[in-house]
């Protein structure tokens, strides 16, 4: 997920070429306070006129407690991007209020309520504590994400490269998302020149259960894909497992062994997920 500042035409018009799974056109923190109107209008014109190819387009609006949140919704909701991302979500109640406002705008424009997702950003201690309710409060909540910089600021601690201060938050947010079967996206890695650091942090994100990671520079995309995409060995092994599974299923056997290791249902499910990521199909 690539962050693009909402008032930067050069970056907005090229957003689709980097192969990011999704783009976050940002009206919030990346836009100066006196350019909020300009960014809103620019994003409105570009969403409808620029080809973003296979990347999903999300828009991060300003919080409703600011003078800009409502105007952002009025401009963006009618365009129905893939998702609207709401910053600094702290309670399920405020997210439900946001969704009410969105659906009111959708009603006015004769738009269905099931197309655009809502993504909640967890960036405060209160949000972390309430994340289970936030993630499950409405069917339209399609993903939750963690904002590391804001969270450490809210906790009044310094953000360290090892992520120690937000480790609990990361895992709590992942668990809440998994419980509700929605996506969960890790925070950005800020040092764009530190490729090894990015790789290490992304490997950790993957290990603890995040389904993706946000990036602030297109140069970071390939490394994240390399980490998240299954390796050739993983794909080969998954292919063998699923193939064996179908063979054994025909014979009515549920649990079997490959190379002396027991293969049961959860391992098969995981292997099927790997093949899905890799776009490989196994004939039954």
């Amino acid at each position: 997920m690539l962050y693009i500042p909402g008032n930067n035409p050069a970056m907005l018009q090229q957003g689709g070429v980097y192969g990011a799974d999704s783009l976050l056109l940002d009206l919030e923190d990346a836009v100066a306070i006196n350019q909020k109107d300009a960014a809103r209008i620019l994003v409105k014109h570009l969403i409808t006129n620029i080809n973003y190819y296979d990347s999903e387009v999300c828009v991060r609006i300003n919080h409703l407690s600011t003078p800009f949140g409502k105007a952002d919704l009025e401009a963006i909701v009618p365009l129905q991007p893939h998702a609207i991302r709401y910053p600094k979500t702290e309670t399920a109640k405020e997210l439900l209020e946001l969704i009410d406002m969105i659906e009111e705008i959708e009603n006015r424009h004769n738009l269905a309520h099931n197309k655009m997702e809502i993504h909640a950003m967890i960036e405060t201690a209160m949000g972390v504590q309430n994340v289970f309710e936030i993630a499950g409060c409405h069917i339209r909540v399609g993903a939750i994400t963690i904002g590391g910089q804001d969270l450490t600021a809210d906790m009044n601690i310094i953000y360290t490269p090892d992520g120690a201060g937000i480790d609990f938050a990361r895992k709590r947010i992942v668990m809440a998302a998994k419980a509700h079967h929605i996506d969960v996206i890790d925070t950005v890695f800020v040092d764009i020149n530190d490729e090894e650091g990015l790789r290490r942090e992304t490997e950790y994100s993957k290990k603890i259960g995040f389904t993706g990671k946000a990036v602030i520079n297109p140069r970071q995309i390939d490394i994240i894909h390399e980490v998240y995409n299954p390796t050739e060995d993983e794909i080969r092994r998954a292919y063998r497992i699923v193939k064996e599974f179908y063979k054994n299923k025909e014979a009515g056997i549920g649990v079997f062994a490959i190379d002396g290791k027991m293969i049961d249902a959860p391992i098969v499910t995981r292997a099927q997920y790997v093949l899905e990521l890799a776009g490989v199909s196994v004939g039954e």
Binding site: Q14, Y18, R219
Partner: peptide, 8 residues
């Protein structure tokens, strides 16, 4: 170059 487009 640092240009993301050139690198792409």
């Amino acid at each position: 170059t640092n240009s993301p487009i050139d690198l792409k």
